[in-house]
């Protein structure tokens, strides 16, 4: 076996172990997980009720979105939202202050691999928990959903692409904690921009043209709107595959940036008291 193949195999072993650990941890808190999931669907149900009401008042649709399409959008939203859960940038403050980072830095493994593997494992539990909730929501709100095989395949890839984009970009953002102690307000600005420009609050197709133009230059829509639209939007193949390419581009940008910034950030690590 070549050295590169051995490295890849060893890294896969780390990921599988991290996934197993995450799943085992989530199984420790089954009830808490269900409450978490129920809490998680409150937000899209509010959006769904509001938009369904507006659609009904406007004669059945808003900008081409019928009540059934809104239902499909926001039910798929619940899964995509959970796939978007990553190691929060706020966690860096705690990770540095508490000394957890010191332990991670002692290991011959870049800490991002643990985060990627652990939160990926978390998703498997979430998907299992999501299925019955999605079924209940579907029975109540009657979504219009008729994806093609390509839509389903692209969606299955895109939700992991979204996870990776968010992981690398917010990991990068979190590293600001190496330079300044309190970075919460900055994160809030970014999260607000993401809420508006990702398709989380409103499908991007309903936003003004200029907002959509801004969104085209940012990564947010590829983490939220694109995976949802891939399944429910009836996008043509070129837009589906183009969307995956855009995801790959943002993942690459984030990964390269981490590779460049991480060694500089680690040099600034003070580890005082930890």
């Amino acid at each position: 076996m070549s050295a590169a193949a051995a490295d890849a195999r060893a890294l896969l072993d780390v990921y599988l172990t991290a996934i197993r650990i995450a799943i085992a941890e989530q199984f420790q808190y089954r009830v808490a997980n269900y409450f978490y999931m129920i809490g998680m669907i409150v937000e899209p149900v509010i959006y769904l009720v509001v938009w369904s009401t507006i659609a009904a008042q406007q004669g059945g649709d808003v900008g081409g979105y019928t009540a059934g399409r809104f239902a499909a959008y926001y039910i798929v939203w619940t899964l995509v939202r959970n796939m978007n859960i990553i190691f929060t940038p706020y966690g860096w403050e705690w990770r540095i202050r508490d000394g957890e980072l010191s332990g991670m830095l002692l290991r011959p493994l870049h800490p991002i691999h643990w985060d990627l593997g652990y939160f990926a494992g978390w998703k498997f539990v979430v998907i299992v928990l999501w299925l019955p909730l999605a079924a209940v929501l579907a029975l109540i709100f009657r979504p219009e959903l008729a994806p093609t095989v390509l839509d389903v395949i692209v969606f299955a890839i895109a939700i992991w692409g979204a996870y990776l984009i968010r992981s690398v970009l917010y990991w990068l953002l979190g590293m600001i904690s190496f330079w300044t102690t309190r970075v919460g307000p900055l994160f809030e600005i970014i999260f607000t921009a993401e809420l508006l420009l990702s398709g989380r609050l409103v499908p991007l197709g309903l936003m003004p043209e200029w907002v959509q133009t801004i969104a085209d230059f940012l990564p947010f829509q590829w983490t939220f709107g694109f995976p949802i639209e891939a399944l429910v939007g009836g996008l043509p193949p070129d837009r589906l595959l183009g969307g995956l390419a855009m995801q790959a581009l943002w993942i690459t940008i984030g990964a390269v940036a981490i590779r460049l910034v991480w060694p500089i950030a680690v040099r600034r690590y003070s580890a005082v008291g930890n």
Partner: peptide
């Protein structure tokens, strides 16, 4: 087990 994987 995680240490086993990390340290190969």
């Amino acid at each position: 087990e995680l240490m086993r994987a990390i340290y190969r």
